[in-house]
């Protein structure tokens, strides 16, 4: 058996998952090839870590913590609202919204009865805009 074949089968050899004849062939190769034997030893040591890497001890406070988490979640859950409130609240908000939109339309369509004040306001505002144009922003900031 060649080194490459052994490398492909090594993990299954270490896990004893190969047929007997192949197990013997790999073992024979490992006895003869020092490089493959070193890799096999290293692989065995590495995989053995998994055997020690398990949670064997139990946390004595585990149940208390689970209970604490349960009660905390129960506290955080909002109280069940009555069905009427759950239905009426969105309906009321929707009606208010519709009323607002309808009111907006009505105001927009209203005849221009009294807009005397608006002309005056326009005249008062324009000079300020003109002044802003005349004055460069740098000078304004320096001041």
């Amino acid at each position: 058996m060649k080194c490459k074949n052994v490398h492909n089968k090594l993990i299954f050899f270490l896990e004893k998952e190969l047929p007997v004849s192949e197990m013997e062939q790999v073992q024979k190769h490992l006895d003869e090839c020092s490089k493959c034997a070193r890799f096999a030893a290293e692989m065995r040591n590495t995989l053995q870590i998994l055997d020690n890497d398990k949670v064997n001890d139990e946390n004595p406070f585990f149940y208390t913590r689970v209970k604490e988490r349960l009660s905390k979640q129960a506290e955080e859950q909002p109280a069940v609202r009555p069905v009427l409130v759950r239905i009426l609240q969105p309906v009321a908000f929707s009606m208010l919204l519709l009323l607002g939109v309808y009111g907006g339309f009505m105001l927009g369509q209203a005849p221009n009865a009294n807009i005397a004040g608006s002309g005056f306001t326009e005249q008062e505002v324009i000079p300020y805009w003109n002044e802003l144009e005349a004055e460069p922003i740098e000078a304004f900031l320096m001041e």
Binding site: K54, V55, N56, E58, N59, F62, Y63, V66
Partner: peptide
């Protein structure tokens, strides 16, 4: 919880 704690944690 006591009987299955190890299983779940592991």
């Amino acid at each position: 919880v006591d009987t299955h704690q190890k299983l779940v944690v592991n």
